[in-house]
Simulated assay, not measured.
Amino acid sequence: MIIQGTEALTSLIHIISESLLTPVVIILVIFVVLSILCLGGVINEKISRKPIMSEEFEKLVRDISFSNSPSEIENFVNDSSLFDWQKDILVKIARNHDIGSKARQALASELISNAETILIKSTNKTDILVRLGPIFGLLGTLIPLGPGLAALGSGDITTLAESLTIAFDTTVTGLAVGGIGYLISKFRKQWYESDLIDVETLAEVELESLNNQSD
């Protein structure tokens, strides 16, 4: 009875394993399409991306620091080459010049934190590709090996060759998806980290300037 029960469970696991091959291949194809779309998106972003230059950034720091009013800070920010989301944060801080200094600090922290969350979400898709691409590639490698080894035992070289071909193809596909996702995430995180540092620096300068104006 124990042997029969074990054989039944083994047969069930074998059926489940083989039935997973088609979904795994479909998911890998979807991952390939997503990775190509993400790669095109990051290339387009790189071409159109124009971060503020260091000379202009230094000038903006000095302009904000020596400004005489919140409206003057807004003008300096709006006339700069900052990204729109960076301008929105700094302008909102300037427009809340009439609240207390601690409240302004809290507002600035919240605005920057929200922006960071949005930027992180934009890299979640490629982070998923980095993790799941190789996993599904490995699944696509292991699942066909069972029938392939069984075919080898019976001398069916053709089935073995087909199983090995599927195994190698899914491995390469999974690794390629993971590699593309890793490169995209790496570049975007570097860009966004630099952007956040810029806006944090300018926000600190702006808060100090507003505090001086209110004294």
Rank of each mutant, 00 (worst) to 15 (best):
I27A: 08
V33Y: 12
S80K: 05
K46C: 11
F31H: 01
I26P: 02
C38K: 15
S48K: 14
V24D: 01
S54P: 07
I52H: 06
V24F: 04
S48R: 14
F57I: 02
C38Y: 15
G40Y: 08
N78C: 12
V25G: 05
V29T: 06
K46Q: 12
L28K: 01
R49P: 08
D63E: 12
L21F: 02
V32N: 10
L28A: 06
L34R: 05
C38M: 15
L20R: 05
I36D: 02
M53Y: 10
F31R: 04
E45N: 11
L28M: 05
I64E: 07
V25Y: 02
N44R: 14
V29C: 09
S65K: 14
I64H: 03
N44L: 14
S80Q: 04
P51D: 05
G40M: 08
L82T: 00
D79L: 14
V42W: 02
R49I: 10
S71A: 13
I43A: 09
L20K: 07
E55Q: 14
F66R: 14
I52N: 07
S19C: 11
P51T: 04
F66M: 13
I73V: 14
M53L: 11
F76V: 14
I52S: 01
P70F: 05
L60R: 09
I26V: 07
I73L: 09
